[in-house]
Design a protein around this nucleic acid. Structure first.
Length: 423
RNA sequence: GGAGAGAUGGCCGAGUUGGCUUAAGGCGCUCGCCUGCUAAGCGAGUGUAGGGUGUCAAGCUCUACCGAGGGUUCGAAUCCCUCUCUCUCCGCCA
């Protein structure tokens, strides 16, 4: 959520931002509504002031034993006038509340203006895509041949876009989760948290999933709860409506959770395999930082996620999302894309974003500056470190052998009980 | 599921016969004093949001906010209703 005062002072910039994002939200009535709101507020506050002062006079008169009935009659009129003005103002406030919830974040100056993903600049590449003296198979075929992934039985259990991992496949997924958590907690300084996998609507609003993106979520029937689409939601909301101390910042959290997404609107995309599931595992990195440090923190967070790919020896590249591809709440996002031999291109495996104060304002996450009066909003960041299912896909495809087996990356072997290949 | 208790500022915690509460007091925090250092002590200050008015600076001033939303009243932290959440005991249960 943007600051109302910021929008008022930078109205043209907000309009340009919407255009650059390809967002056709109409904010043309903002300025007149804003003026109207302030005028009505002034009228209402004058009436309230009168009520407050006269009420004190009535109290004083009664104390002296004087008759106040005349003044009381007069105040009945004022009081009903206040009620009328209050309800009119409430309608206007409602307009602003709705509007503020659907205006996206301002992109950072370094973000390229572009229409869609074809304009995303490549920032860097790492590793060499492997060469094969045979035709590399897609991961679902590798998985089914090795009997470590079973999509048809998963369909029996839950339908399309679900997976059943078996044997070494299930173990590999678990090993990856542990591997990532170990590195981020022991080497990168993150604190591990294990949050609820379903949260209330206030959390979803705090991080920006609601009200705009409700169709992407699974809602629990009869409850005010939703299954989390990412650990970002519960973990960022850990400090919702809190005032942190400056010395506590930055705060680093890492969290393994399953993620649940309805994938509405993605019919026909990635229908086979693990790439796009209704339920998948992810290790998420979340940071709370001081405003002046947040872009440095974004670089570090991205590097932390990249480290996992490097240790696993998986070729990847880093792109920076352009304005047209940038998420609703993000000011800047780096996507990590891993090489998939069967598709012969890079697929997103992590998305690392700085949300500046956009989520913090919605969720009221502030900090108290040492030696200064008042509080300021923190900056929030997060990134996948990494999407576990897609990491498993990348391992199966990049480490597949001519005989159908899959080598286990060296860094992972100790997490697999010394296993060196799945055959 | 049954019974009961509670929700107040960064934290703890008074205030519930409605009207000097501009939310007592304490802790914490900030600044200053004192102290060789540390600790202790002394003094002052210290909520959030939205308006108005300033050289859109300090400041001054107004309004709202005591879990949320309604209601009663000239006036509500205080009375009434609905809801949410937390805690305790009982029951059930991994």
């Amino acid at each position: 959520m943007l600051d109302l005062k910021f929008i008022r002072a930078n109205f043209d910039d907000v309009r340009i931002m919407l255009k650059n994002r390809g967002n056709d939200l109409d904010i043309s009535s903002f300025e007149s509504m804003d003026r109207d709101r302030r005028e009505r507020l002034a009228t209402l506050e004058a009436l309230r002031h009168k009520r407050n002062t006269v009420s004190d006079e009535i109290a004083a008169m009664k104390k002296k034993g004087e008759n106040a009935s005349g003044v009381i009659e007069e105040m009945k009129m004022v009081s009903s006038d206040i009620k009328k003005q209050e309800s009119e103002l409430a309608d206007i406030e409602e307009y602003f509340n709705r509007l503020l919830m659907v205006i996206p974040n301002m992109p950072d100056e370094s973000v390229v203006v572009g229409k869609d993903e074809t304009s995303n600049p490549v920032i860097r590449e790492w590793g060499e895509p492997p060469t094969f003296d045979f035709e590399p198979l897609p991961h679902w075929e590798i998985g089914e041949r090795l009997d470590i992934l079973d999509f048809s039985r998963a369909a029996k259990l839950a339908g399309a876009r679900f997976a059943l991992y078996k044997g070494a496949g299930a173990r590999l997924e678990r090993a990856l989760i542990n591997f990532m958590l170990e590195i981020h907690t022991r080497e990168h300084g993150y604190t591990e948290v294990l949050p609820p996998f379903m949260v209330n609507a206030a959390c979803m609003t705090g991080t920006g999933q609601l009200p705009k993106f409700e169709e992407d979520l699974f809602k629990i029937e009869g409850w005010d709860h939703y299954l989390i689409p990412t650990a970002e939601v519960p973990v960022t909301n850990i400090h919702r409506e809190e005032v942190l101390r400056e010395e506590e910042l930055p705060k680093y959290y890492v969290s393994y959770t399953p993620c649940f997404r309805s994938e509405a609107g993605s019919y026909g995309k990635d229908t086979r395999g693990l790439i796009r599931q209704h339920q998948f595992n992810k290790v998420e990195l979340v940071k709370f930082s001081k405003p002046e440090d947040s872009y440095d923190e974004l670089e570090r967070l991205t590097a932390n996620a990249e480290e996992i790919l490097k240790r696993l020896g998986l070729p990847y590249r880093v792109i920076s999302l352009c304005t047209g591809d940038l998420g609703f709440s993000a000011a800047k996002t780096y996507d990590l894309e891993v090489w998939l031999p069967s598709q012969k291109f890079y697929r997103e495996i992590s998305s690392c974003s700085n949300f500046t104060d956009f989520q913090a304002r919605r969720a009221e996450i502030r900090y108290k500056k040492k030696g200064e009066a008042g509080t300021a909003l923190v900056h929030t960041l997060n990134g996948s470190g990494l999407a576990v299912g897609r990491t498993l896909v990348a391992i199966l495809e990049n480490y597949q052998q001519a005989d159908g087996s899959v080598l286990i990356p060296e860094a992972l072997r100790s997490f697999m009980g010394g296993m060196i290949s799945i055959a």
